[in-house]
Computed example of a mutant assay.
Amino acid sequence: MSADPGTVRPGGRTARVRAAVLRAAGDVLVEEGFDRLDLADVARRAEVGKTTVYRRWGSVTGLVADLLADMAETSSPREETGAVLTDLLANAGLVQRTLADVRQGALFRAVIAAAACDARTAQALRRFYEVRVAEWAPCVEQGVTRGELPVGTDAGAVVRAVSAPLYYEWLTAGVVPDNPAAERAARAAHAAAVAGVYVRTP
């Protein structure tokens, strides 16, 4: 059974080709948006043969899905500080820096816009966030083990609660989150978790 386009993780020259193509695809998304993403143009920018790009990724959505997979793989790993609050503050800081970054912020905005009208991109975006939430969930789970949070706390819900207000303002009001906004989001999620708001009900 063959893998979906762009999902095989290559090495050597193939890895260099993948990196160049994904970089070029990100450039197009940042500069021109999803509607202008074209495999032939990406191949030209990456200085790779069109046949290689079409054979490996097959479609624009296949390329975007692989770009998101790469972003999930290369995102900064979670920080473990030994306390839930400071772990959540670290998570909020990472989200803030990502959205405030000129390239990363524009790239996420383009992909989120594309996901609103393209099912495969939406699926790839959901997968990206599943990976990132799973990366940080152990911080909350360890907090439960240490007795900082109630037993039964939904770790994924707490992690999502940290980034939700930052994304909301960024997407709906065009406000790039700053450090105080990130701290407020983390402290609010932590306070709610301590109060048992995110305890799973049977």
Rank of each mutant, 00 (worst) to 15 (best):
A122P: 01
L88A: 09
E47F: 05
N91W: 15
E80G: 11
K50A: 09
V64I: 00
A122Q: 07
R103P: 05
L29D: 03
A113M: 06
R55F: 05
D87M: 10
L29Y: 08
F108N: 12
K50E: 10
A115N: 04
V102Y: 09
G49T: 13
L89C: 03
A122Y: 09
A115S: 15
A92L: 11
A124F: 09
V28W: 01
L125Q: 08
A110G: 07
R103E: 11
V53F: 05
T61V: 13
Q96W: 02
D118A: 02
D70L: 10
Y129W: 15
V48C: 01
R36Q: 14
A92D: 09
A114M: 02
Q104R: 14
A72I: 05
R109M: 10
L67E: 08
D35P: 04
R103Y: 12
Q104P: 08
R97I: 11
L99D: 01
A83S: 13
P77V: 06
T81N: 04
R97F: 10
A119D: 14
G49A: 10
L85R: 15
K50P: 15
E31F: 00
F34K: 01
R56M: 10
G93R: 05
T121S: 03
L99R: 05
L89R: 14
L94G: 09
V42R: 06
A113V: 09
A72G: 11
V64C: 03
L29A: 11
A83V: 09
D35K: 08
G26M: 03
A43M: 09
G33R: 00
V102N: 07
V48K: 08
T86P: 04
D41T: 14
Q96D: 00
S59Y: 08
R45W: 01
A106G: 14
T74D: 13
S76W: 06
S59K: 08
E73L: 13
R126H: 14
R126W: 10
L39R: 06
S75F: 11
G82H: 06
N91G: 08
R56P: 00
T81V: 11
V102T: 12
G82N: 07
R109Y: 07
L85Y: 09
D66P: 01
A106V: 10
V64E: 00
